[in-house]
Write a protein that binds this DNA or RNA. Structure first.
Length: 236
DNA sequence: GCCAACGTTGGC
DNA sequence: GCCAACGTTGGC
């Protein structure tokens, strides 16, 4: 599902007391997430899922990711009558080259966004387009806060099931950092992935391939460094 | 446009 | 809590 139309959203985070609203029987977003995670583990014992669910204040001792890949669609496509196009050039064109990464409607992706810290770097990945791949880098400049587009009926990613008293979806703010020295095509990353899976190497379990549908994904430092090193290498 | 993979929903 | 049906993602 990726993100939607980007705007500058520097509205006050609306700090809501996240805590026991002593609410109905309805599952909280975090509970739903945990269930989803558990199911995922049962059905496909994937490992590097990262930290799960629940808490954004990472418990000590859990490996914390600090590099990311975020997908967005650089070509026009209409969802609920709204164009969701948002490529790296669109981010670059915004005031301060800064925007909010709204529209994420998947619990795992949301949880990864809530793990993000200011100053961390993320790859800007172009998906669902002619040439999928990594186009550039951006920096996280504001940690997760409520994605207001979930309440907006006219938004491509309006979610009628989410209530302001208990929002489901979050977003972060990002700033364009730079283009990669060359575009890093998915096909090339995949070649390395397959090679590394067979013979060992940094990209052997890259989430881009092991969890292909996740629109916000973590990379280990080793994965991140290897991918970045490709910009100085000849395409294969 | 096709369709495989996988996340979500809801009946039981 | 299982699981079939359904919906979405995203490469090709």
């Amino acid at each position: 599902m990726l993100r939607g139309i980007c705007r500058i959203c520097d509205m006050p985070p609306k700090k809501r007391a996240r805590g026991r609203p002593a609410k109905s029987a309805e599952a909280t977003p975090d509970q739903v997430t945990e269930e989803t995670e558990i199911r995922r583990k049962k059905t496909q014992k994937s490992k590097s899922a990262g930290k799960e669910g629940a808490d954004r204040d990472a418990p000590v001792g859990k490996a914390a990711y600090c590099h990311w890949l975020m997908k967005s669609e650089p070509e026009s496509r209409f969802e609920n009558g709204v164009d969701v196009k948002f490529g790296i050039e669109d981010l670059k064109a915004l005031p301060n080259q800064t925007g909010c990464w709204d529209g994420v409607r998947n619990y795992q992706a949301r949880n990864f966004m809530r793990d993000m810290k200011v100053q961390q770097l993320a790859f800007f990945y172009h998906s669902n387009c002619k040439e999928p791949g990594i186009a550039g880098l951006m920096k996280i400049i504001k940690e997760a806060y409520v994605d207001h587009t979930q309440f907006d009926r006219s938004d491509a990613h309006y979610d009628a099931s989410s209530k302001p008293e208990n929002p489901k979806w979050y977003m972060v703010d990002v700033r364009f950092e730079r283009m990669t020295k060359r575009f890093l095509p998915l096909a090339e990353l995949k070649k390395y992935h397959l090679q590394h899976k067979a013979e060992g190497g940094a990209l052997g379990s890259l989430a881009l391939f092991t969890r292909a549908r996740l629109s916000v994904q973590p990379l280990s430092a080793e994965e991140f460094d290897f991918v970045l090193s490709l910009e100085d290498r000849d395409p294969i």
